[in-house]
Design a protein around this nucleic acid. Sequence first.
DNA 1: AGCAGATATGTAAGCGCTTGCATTTTGCAT
DNA 2: ATGCAAAATGCAAGCGCTTACATATCTGCT
Lengths: 341, 341
Amino acid sequence: MSKPRSAPTLDDVAKMAGVSTATVSRCLNNPDRVVATTRERVQAAVDALGYTPNFAARVMAAKRSFTIGAIIPTMENAIFARGLQAFQEELHLRGYTLLVSSSAYKPDIEEEQIRKLAARGADGLLLIGHDRDPEIYKYLESRRIPTLIAWSYRPNALAPSIGFDNRKAMRNLAERVIAAGHTRIGMISGIREGNDRARLRIEGVQDAANARGLSPDGFTIVETPYEIENGGAAFAELMAQPVPPTAILCGNDVLAVGAVRRAQDMGLRVPQDVSITGFDDIELARIVSPALTTVHVPHREMGRKAALQLVEMVETQSPGQGEQLATNIVSGGSLGPPPQG
Amino acid sequence: MSKPRSAPTLDDVAKMAGVSTATVSRCLNNPDRVVATTRERVQAAVDALGYTPNFAARVMAAKRSFTIGAIIPTMENAIFARGLQAFQEELHLRGYTLLVSSSAYKPDIEEEQIRKLAARGADGLLLIGHDRDPEIYKYLESRRIPTLIAWSYRPNALAPSIGFDNRKAMRNLAERVIAAGHTRIGMISGIREGNDRARLRIEGVQDAANARGLSPDGFTIVETPYEIENGGAAFAELMAQPVPPTAILCGNDVLAVGAVRRAQDMGLRVPQDVSITGFDDIELARIVSPALTTVHVPHREMGRKAALQLVEMVETQSPGQGEQLATNIVSGGSLGPPPQG
DNA sequence: AGCAGATATGTAAGCGCTTGCATTTTGCAT
DNA sequence: ATGCAAAATGCAAGCGCTTACATATCTGCT
């Protein structure tokens, strides 16, 4: 017995089973269109040869890949992990494979990845957030690739979306902070450019401040990439002001965790000396102590529903309606009243 | 101007540029084999049409995919994140794309994923750890798919590997724990089956215990999947023994963080009342307080070197030599002398 | 027994690209 | 001008699969 020079093909199976390649193909893809006896014969050949269909050939011939692409801003932290996990589980159940790539929060890389996934024959695409060059939506439409947006809900956008209202969610949290008595508020935001979530969360804080009649000079924003150390650095920067804030709202949990750690390094107690809040409610939020007061996002639900929605768009050629999900605030001990209050 | 019914093809470009498809193909893949003037003409057509090569067709024709597959046990926690990130960055530099999938620590899922990646034409594969059915190595060899193993170094194994000596690393850490005065040691291990890293780490602790003449009844092991909550539960279980351990070594940082949090919930101070150590030195280890005393693994270096090695194996058909990397212990405050010592 | 209609299988035309080989063009020394 | 090797390009054969469409083989009726 010599090793095969290359993988067995449909032809090999067909020959061994004494049928045509068409029949073998049908056995694999439409078993009910082939009579039981032949089916068994073919199956035996498949097993004997250890045959696995060549994916590229299948994609070419069928013009379907049963592959869904997703482009997320980063894999470095866990922000998207849980949602994506649920997304992929649901996809798997429906017979689809997920291909993930990351854009490092860079629009041009995202565009490159979109083209790459299109070239790979992705049947549908999941993108994060709405902010991107409108040309991209045109491209996707011209290539007939159903696209769904997650992590940010917006009706009547260029593409359907499933997510939550970032602005309102953050506003709610900010109002709670203000209600606790804080008047000097700082914010550590992610980079706004090309990131509607970051932008909307800032606006949410502003909404709350306006609604509660907070003086604008009591509100400073530092913008920095979503990384733990950056959260720490931004925290230090905010606290170095002549009149430092008593509460700091962070654009997400990663920044907040960095802020909490830095506060502790600086000898500040959270929340006695300074309050800090997060956004996302990822695992990290509960590991740091005190645990973060943060906005809980239903990641798993979002991922699962996104999968269902996108598969439907792909299979029925329908436009997709999108859906808004609710968030809620979880209290974790990092938010308290202002000092000497 | 009507929307194209489907993506432009090589043919379209060729026609527009007034050359043959062969020339267009060469422009894209071997630009130096085509004269500058034609190259420009072709490039213009490519741009005008917004042409992107069809990946499946290219793979079929070229029998190369410039894709490397990696199968990791889990994406849920960050254990593999940093190493994989470095792996993919290096791969990208070399012109390869990384396809990642996870096996959920299940051998049969891993096998399925291996076949899937093979079917997708992966030029090479990165696998974690050595423990798996030997048939798989045969399959990979018969399909001529270069395979490299990471996260665990072992010379003369069925496949080359790049990683560290899990057993010795853990032994070193355990010796330090014993040197601190602990005689009753507990261990929270990951599931051993199909996971040589987990197995070797246990053996490392045993090595140290034997070398230091520790009584075997002073050493209890709890085996549980790598998840934070499990670490907590296992910790509670260990501490519920009539004579609880004074130090608990964990199979990785995730388990250790769970243990630390649970200890605090139980009103135990770390390390005054109980010492806890981790393994991996992931970000989490430094966020929890006290920070973990743990084994630092050079994840980025490992990922980068794995990429270089694997690409070489793919491009030169060489067997690959593998490499052992050093680990070191980082002290984080979670390890102290035993109580009343 | 014989036939319509369903059911099962085979035939063969691509899908979009790469690449060995054949052919044409070019550059340059004579 | 002429010839020749080298460089540039074209031709066409696949790569392994799916799927109309054509053909062959069954059903169950009358």
